[in-house]
Design a protein around this nucleic acid. Structure first.
Lengths: 272, 272
DNA sequence: AAACTAGGTGCAACTAGCGCAACAGTAGTG
DNA sequence: CACTACTGTTGCGCTAGTTGCACCTAGTTT
């Protein structure tokens, strides 16, 4: 009845909730950390509990405390661990490609991975635009991300249909997402041309292009995407698309993909 | 008996030990993760314990498991937490260093990041001078900023040449920018000495020094710069430069950079 | 001064997690 | 194939660690 704790995650979940609060929303002016009471209230937990948990986390270096304001923020240990993630390795290798795209077109460039049905942005290289929403570490629904089409390019139609059927979107964005058949056509375009073009999905950009990044086994592990805000001219979209596709292809090679070796599938593909 | 548990870190310490093992002991070929028994033996703990802990950690996304090899490695959540926070954290931790520099030399101190081909000032700490130009939130061309040289110190010569070729400057400032070879020499100076010296570029200061700030991955994410208005004596420039370099180095360590360790790859990394 | 608030502590009750041992998969070696 | 040698998961009694309340301490406001 009362579930036996199949998973011994009692304090762990609490600690993760705390870390999640300390990470803030990324966008917000969370500025200089958070106090014990604020966190406790936000989590609906006891102050004492949070206080002790934070001290333990501090002892481990997962959080650190400003000696004067006595507020907590994420600590060096977490960053050190994050740097050892395979994602960090990927970002490291991808960085020059993203920089190249961002400066070449003066648009924001992103590196994204698939996590469940969400798209997690690993890295964003801003253009010179004044406003730049920081997406790093943020997950958005697959259908709303420019990188979405590229990340699922290898899925079979069956699975795509399920995904499209299962996903419910905020109603105001519903019209922005194209129909099922269009999606399938878009995926075919990715497979043949190596890049995807997306119109009107993300909130702060009107369009975007993306391309899949493959690892040494030929599996899609990430996607590069570039937002396109300045012009809607189809020509420009496809010009950038081709560049993104080429960057993704070269990045894949850097990851160990044999240049011309056939992945699992995808019938026609003349290497550019 | 053993001291009362002032700190309730029971499972936390175990989890941290596990994460630390998964992070690999720095050396290379841990590659594709570790198995339960191996970790348990290495920690001197029960297999069962480690197994359950890992499942809990996986549920939280702190670790992830390769579906075929069934080995664990660090997970996306760590990366996401760090990525969302690193910007705010940079500003927070940098503040005292900037204040220290500003008061030590009574000059304006700045924290800058690279955005596209522009240098964006995130924070400025004024000296005691009456007139202080507020640069926060302002972007200036890379070539005109004192921090510019530091921010691109890791780029290879190829890209630097492209940058210098591509940038067109207001004609009246053209003479202020040194030639290509001088730029490359300046970058070599940054790499060897840890700070850059810039003459006559920004509008309201005659000279400036700057130094690159590296994050936990060893990548340059920001630069500290200090304007030098009071004297042109080269000796003073280099005195301040050394201080700025040292501040940037300590800031980098505060951000999680391992003091002497090699980032990931030292030599010229193959990339566009 | 009192009256806040934020953060930390002591302690008894209780529950979560430890460790042992048994179990279930997978893989070699002859 | 049974034989051994693994690695990873699970059941369960017992104990250690966490919980939540009430109570402090210290700083800030009225």
């Amino acid at each position: 009845m009362t579930d036996k704790p199949m998973v011994p995650s009692a304090g762990l979940r609490r600690d993760m909730e705390i870390l999640e609060v300390l990470a803030g929303h990324g966008d917000g002016r969370d500025a200089d950390g958070f106090g014990v009471s604020w966190i406790a209230q936000r989590l609906g937990r006891e102050k004492s509990q949070v206080s002790r948990a934070l001290r333990a986390l501090e002892l481990e270096g997962m959080v650190e405390r400003d000696p004067i304001t006595r507020r907590y923020r994420l600590g060096w240990r977490l960053f050190a661990l994050a740097a050892r993630t395979q994602h960090a390795r990927l970002v490291q290798i991808a960085a020059p490609y993203l920089r190249g795209l961002a400066t070449a077109f003066d648009e924001d460039a992103y590196l994204c991975v698939l996590r469940g049905n969400l798209v997690l942005t690993l890295m964003s290289v801003p253009s010179s635009r004044v406003y730049h929403r920081v997406w790093e570490g943020i997950s958005v629904p697959l259908l709303m991300a420019a990188a979405g089409r590229s990340l699922v390019a290898d899925w079979d139609d069956q699975r795509i249909r399920e995904l499209l059927r299962a996903t419910t979107l905020p109603s105001e964005l519903d019209s922005a997402v194209s129909g099922t058949e269009e999606w399938l056509a878009d995926l075919a375009h990715v497979r043949s041309c190596g890049y995807a073009v997306t119109d009107v999905e993300l909130e702060d950009s009107k369009a975007g292009v993306s391309a899949p990044v493959r690892d040494h086994r030929g599996l899609i592990t990430a996607a590069i995407s570039v937002s396109v805000t300045r012009t809607h001219a189809a020509a420009r979209l496809h010009e950038i698309g081709a560049a993104v596709g080429e960057a993704a292809r070269q990045l894949s090679i850097s990851l160990g993909l044999v240049p011309d070796g056939r992945p699992v599938m995808s019938p026609t593909q003349g290497s550019p």
